[in-house]
Amino acid sequence: MAAFALIWWAASVLTDNPLLLPSPQAVSAAFAGLALDGELFTQSALSVVRLLAALLIAFAIAAPLGLAMGMSKRFEEFVDPVVELLRPISGIAWIPLGLFIFGVGQSLPIFIMAYTATFPVLIGTVSGVKSVDRKLVRAAETMGLSQSAIVARVVVPSILPALLVSLRLGVASAWTAVIAAELVGAPNGLGYAISWYREMLVTPKMIAFIAMVGVCGYFCDLALRLLAARLTPWAPGAEARR
């Protein structure tokens, strides 16, 4: 890590052009300055709140749909072709059309992220339901549980670990998509800030915001890992994750 900082510093001295490659000190100073006046946090908070809203939407769509697709072969045959037709079209490819529909604002990044996160969650749920241990379902049947009790008490807890993993995948890809969406079509947020400072040619601040993308991405993932350890203490590796 120290070697990396040293290389960066040496490169910045050699380039001798703070517009192209500001020194580590300049970037740290910019980071501190943005943190002190709060701009770093307001922009990050906007992006993160959008991420949470999009995740909620994606989860509300994908989890019940995936549950139904996993449990009914017939239903899956109806819905799966549409899913497979849409899935290869990345969320990012929706940006131009989304811009036209939603305009520049909150809705576009939320739409793009929700779209992006829906597929991993859906696929994780479907494959989770399909790999539910048949024996557990049968065991519950011999204990006289009703079908709805089996779904609530056996199927849902069975797929929870897979669901949480797919949620992490969804967050990772949605986070990439939101930066793209904000870069193009949002009046604020991290992606917007990065592109704003590039146009202003304030490279240290731009790099500070790029770093903040990583920081937020890291903490979102960490939060989901903690949530998983909390919700699924039985899953393998849960103790190591705590």
Binding site: K135, L136, A139, A149, P157, W234, A235
Partner: peptide, 29 residues
Amino acid sequence: VDRGVMFQDYALFPWRTVAENVAFPLRFG
């Protein structure tokens, strides 16, 4: 529930503790 089964590889619910597994048929069945 008059005919109980013990499965070959036990079919324990991995998300429930020992006591919660034993309570399962009483609480939900």
